[in-house]
Design a protein around this nucleic acid. Structure first.
Length: 555
RNA sequence: GCGCCUGUAGCUCAGUUGGAUAGAGCAACUGCCUUCUAAGCAGUGGGUCAGGGGUUCGAAUCCCUUCAGGCGCGCCA
């Protein structure tokens, strides 16, 4: 729908260029879906965006364009000017039927253009420290990252999704110390618990498991003597839990990158050396600094401390250098918004290594406030008191949780009320969309019982021309908007657009279902309507798949 | 003190990158099941787009400013 229109408008502009003056800079042709269906099927604002350069009223420009467009023809029933200078297009029914036929015979991808063109994108998300279970904030990041990857893939990008494991450094060591202390305590050796240690109940569980596994072998040994045993086992067990939680949440990764491995392969030292050779590292006050302020960061950052230890920043330099070396066109990091202050320094690193500014994008996910009956649920990681993602999944379900995460844009704060998510389950938007899918599935089951063949292959235009009701035309147009939605959502990094689109589509279907019967004595009409149902089903299924939400055949 | 995010209907949120009369879901009210799933449909009411300036053909959207909430500003990770 978009392409045909865009091409025609483009041709019209080319024809008018000599009239207007050849040096006129043409704006991008913006093709949009009109706010109101009665205005038209598709619209362009190009006449209005030309007012400034042409110094003419938008209505006048639109008229000139309209003349050219009418001469060029195209699959339009009507093209008209409305409002301040919109050019509104209404398609011929025949064209719409053809597009639906393509959708049915070739699938949803047949409608999309391919803005990604196979370019490689790396997208890193969740990357929670393996020092405790995932919480609800990670869940939001996971849902977003997963949906965004799917979206970019649907838009034709070659996407790799990665989880970065912070398995080196002080935090995992602290984890090891915490588990060590509980281990000793459980065996009657009252050693002090580390001051900033992890206090969650899961620490005790890990200690218990280690006792079952290795008995009191490490009793009375100091942490210096046996710390690796506790550290390694603890983070590996937690990582296994994290991995399982994500999998149960329906989120999978192509690659798990270990921080430790970067050290072992000497990548940290190498990357710092490279920066030094490029002149971006200097010494001051006994420490080594990276010149991030050269790239817009507010100040330079320490990479090697006075005591010779790396800062946490150093392995992140190595990690992002490693991403670059793997040959991605674009690198995306998804972080919690509490890390936003970290963006300029990582961007600086990538620029120092030669990546163009716009090839690195950070998607910041705002905080989630967990509520119950409108009252905040107290969360304290330090005290080990928090609701885990696992508990949320068990209480409200994966589909519901994801849908809620994906109905908000990333940079708005989210109130997640456990009771609302649960209690409203029958009125929950996710079920509304799934229900439309289940209803269609049910129609097909009934059709089969009656011996009506379901349209799968060999759909002809004549099968579709029986579709004439207003509700049918609305549904068809909505279906054909799908690629536009995907394109826009992928471009803007906004999975929530898909969520809203699916609700709109489901609404149109439910309304249609209530007003018109699909299965009737009229064979031709029945077949046509089954075709439409199939088309709706294809798009619903694909959309839900992008969001990582299931499409049940029965509810 | 500085930086980032947010402020839209009673509640939770959209608003197609500056466009047409600002929308949806919940909540409230009124109708609709002997017919393909009522987890549904049809309808009604509900707004100083936080406040104030500015930019222009046109602003919820961009700029300035005030207010409110959240987050961040370490040779911590």
């Amino acid at each position: 729908m978009k392409q045909v229109t865009s091409e025609i408008v483009h041709k019209a502009l080319e024809k008018l260029k000599p009239v207007w003056g050849l040096d006129i800079i043409m704006p991008d042709i913006e093709i949009e879906i009109p706010r109101n269906e009665s205005l038209g099927d598709i619209t362009t604002t190009v006449a209005m965006s030309l007012t400034r350069t042409l110094k003419k009223p938008p209505g006048k420009i639109a008229e000139e364009l309209l003349q050219e467009i009418n001469q060029l023809g195209g699959p339009f029933e009507k093209v008209e000017i409305a409002g301040p200078g919109f050019i509104n297009f209404r398609f011929k029914k025949q064209y719409l039927y053809e597009r639906v036929k393509t959708l049915l015979t070739e699938g949803h991808s047949s409608l999309s253009s391919n803005p990604g063109q196979g370019r490689k994108i790396q997208i890193e998300f969740v990357s929670a420290n393996p020092t405790g279970p995932l919480h609800i904030g990670h869940g939001r990041g996971a849902a977003m990252g997963s949906a965004l990857s799917n979206l970019l893939r649907a838009a034709g990008f070659d996407v790799e999704r990665e989880y970065y494991i912070n398995d080196a450094g002080l935090q995992v060591k602290l984890l090891g110390q915490s588990v060590y202390a509980r281990y000793q305590q459980l065996l009657g050796n009252e050693v002090p618990f580390p001051e900033d240690g992890y206090k969650g109940a899961y620490i005790g569980s890990i200690s218990k498991e280690l006792i079952e596994k290795s008995g009191d072998k490490y009793l009375k040994l100091s942490f210096e003597e046996c710390g690796d045993f506790f550290t390694d086992n603890a983070y590996k067990m937690l990582l296994a839990d994290i991995s399982k939680d994500l999998k149960d949440f329906g989120v999978e990764f192509d690659r798990w990158q270990s921080e430790k491995a970067l050290y072992e392969k000497n990548r940290v030292e190498e990357s710092l050396n490279e920066l030094r050779e490029k002149g971006f590292i200097y010494e001051k006050d006994g420490a080594k600094w990276f010149r991030s302020s050269d790239f817009g960061d507010e100040k330079d950052r320490v990479v090697v401390k006075k005591d010779g230890e790396y800062t946490y920043f150093a392995p992140d330099i190595a990690y992002h250098k490693d991403k670059l070396d793997r040959g991605f066109d674009t690198i995306i990091d998804i972080w919690g918004a509490d890390h936003h202050g970290y963006v300029p320094r990582i961007r600086s690193v990538l620029e120092a290594f030669g990546l163009a500014k716009e090839k690195f994008r950070v998607m910041l996910i705002q905080m989630v406030s967990l509520l119950r009956h409108g009252e905040p649920v107290q969360m304290s990681k330090r005290a080990g008191k928090f609701i885990t993602l696992r508990e949320v999944i068990d209480e409200v379900g994966s589909d519901t949780a994801k849908f809620i995460f994906l109905t908000r844009k990333a940079d708005s704060h989210l109130d997640f009320d456990l009771e609302v998510a649960k209690e409203e389950s029958s009125e929950n938007p996710v079920f509304y969309v799934q229900y439309a899918f289940a209803r269609i599935s049910s129609i097909f089951r009934r059709a089969e019982e009656r011996g009506v063949r379901s349209p799968k292959t060999g759909v002809k235009i004549e099968d579709l021309t029986v579709l004439k009701e207003d509700e049918e035309m609305s549904l068809i147009k909505k279906l054909l908007q799908y690629p536009l939605v995907i394109e826009g959502a992928a471009h803007a990094f906004e999975p929530h657009r898909v969520t809203y689109y699916l609700q709109d589509l489901a609404k149109l279907f439910h309304s249609y279902y209530n007003k018109h019967r699909v299965l009737s004595d009229d064979n031709a009409l029945t077949r046509g309507r089954l075709c439409l149902c199939r088309a709706v089903q294809i798009v619903l299924k694909e959309g839900l798949k992008l969001l990582g939400v299931s499409a049940p055949k029965k509810m």
